[in-house]
Nucleic acid binder design. Structure first.
Lengths: 236, 236
DNA sequence: GTCTATAGCTAGATAGAC
DNA sequence: GTCTATCTAGCTATAGAC
């Protein structure tokens, strides 16, 4: 969205526009980090970036769009980081840990304005709603990261389909907790993530054992069927 | 909050203020239902209620506050409805079904503006954040409803503590799904709720059986411990 | 296509008079 | 407790420079 991660692809030489856009973007993030999202006005951002207010709107259709663009960038960073740190790691638990903790590390200085991402959660038609149509592309990218995290591990077909979405949802919840977490370095969120992942993987291992599996198989099928009926399409 | 459900308590005679407030409130809801939350302005509300804009703000500190007040009223209605419909019902599954479906029934015409409740979810300090300090009282009331729903059923101490909060959280998620659900009468949400409750209660029954219980007991303890460490206080 | 300057609209929110 | 006037800021629009 808004092509923010575009310059990551190769050595695209920046036109004049790209530079201005980047300046506005960086300035905005700095102001958001310092003062938070609410108190920072578009006029502030434009002034600090030494451009006219209209220029800011030329590149970003709304203030929230800047945060959305930031989040796009985060996803690119996250994908890279996960790919890098996943190398060699084969265990499910360890791989999921990488996916979750690396996300938090990327977001660590930006709790003050991350909340803006959730502003339109309750508005299905808003282009920036986390669950809306307008953010489908980002959602898919994010889910893909979790798909990669579980790749190569031994899972049932049902789980292979379901888990990435569950993890994506869980990771959204984690970000919310993260925003509210005032402990030093947000250890609380990190520990909670570990706890949940421990439980989840233990549960998966348990239900995958030959002893228990025939017992839980129908459950898995039922859950999948239920979610499908409830409108979960597994959209790529 | 904002004392909206106050007139439910007894036959408090309405002062002039109470009447104005009620007029603004009712008018706002009507406009919200007709046009949605966004397009309805405070000026519209004030005009329709035949008061000045300032008067509206005198009673409701923000537009969202009107929705919050509405939700307070919903909670009162929900508590009443649940108490009524719970009479005689003893099974856990049935009781939980009452709690969830009755909530949806109360909200059924108001999906268009319910989303406003979630607007400040990502802002810990905002007085109207669903998870914030400012809404603790409502949260407790809502949790209490679920406590009542599970009252009298045979549950472990750990579950008795944990379940109401889990149900409250689940019910928030249900409301979100509800808002996004465009199916006739939001059957999809109702069915999803049923599906989840089926699974949940089956799971509880299963893990409560003498055969399995010693096996899952340590898990329950671990979950509780983890959540406590993660800052879950079980605040009344 | 990129940007400035500027003016204006709208609507949420506030201040102060009565 | 209610009103009028005002402020603020997100956002739009326009006209023009390059």
């Amino acid at each position: 969205m808004f092509n923010v991660g575009a310059d990551v692809i190769g050595t695209a030489k920046k036109g004049a526009g790209e530079k201005t856009k980047a300046a506005i973007f960086e300035t905005a993030l700095e102001l958001f980090r310092r003062g938070g999202f609410e108190v920072t006005t578009m006029r502030d951002i434009a002034r600090s970036a030494k451009v006219a207010t209209g220029a800011a709107y030329y590149y970003f259709p709304s203030k929230e769009a800047i945060v959305a663009a930031y989040y796009d960038q985060v996803q690119v960073l996250h994908a890279e980081k996960v790919r890098l740190e996943l190398g060699g790691k084969a265990g499910l638990r360890e791989r999921l840990g990488v996916a979750m903790h690396s996300k938090l590390e990327i977001l660590k200085d930006d709790r003050k304005f991350l909340g803006a991402l959730f502003r339109y959660t309750g508005d299905p038609d808003h282009p920036l709603s986390v669950f809306g149509k307008g953010t489908q592309a980002q959602r898919s990218q994010s889910v893909a990261i979790f798909q990669e995290a579980i790749a190569g591990t031994d899972l049932s077909e049902a789980l292979r389909q379901l888990l990435p979405w569950v993890l994506w949802l869980a990771h959204l919840g984690m970000i919310l907790v993260f925003i509210y977490d005032e402990t030093e370095g947000q250890q609380r969120t990190h520990r909670l993530a570990d706890g949940i992942l421990d439980l989840l993987t233990q549960f998966i291992v348990l239900t995958s054992s030959a002893l228990v599996r025939p017992f839980v198989q129908p459950w898995q099928t039922k859950i999948l069927g239920m979610l499908r009926e409830a409108g979960w399409t597994g959209e790529t």
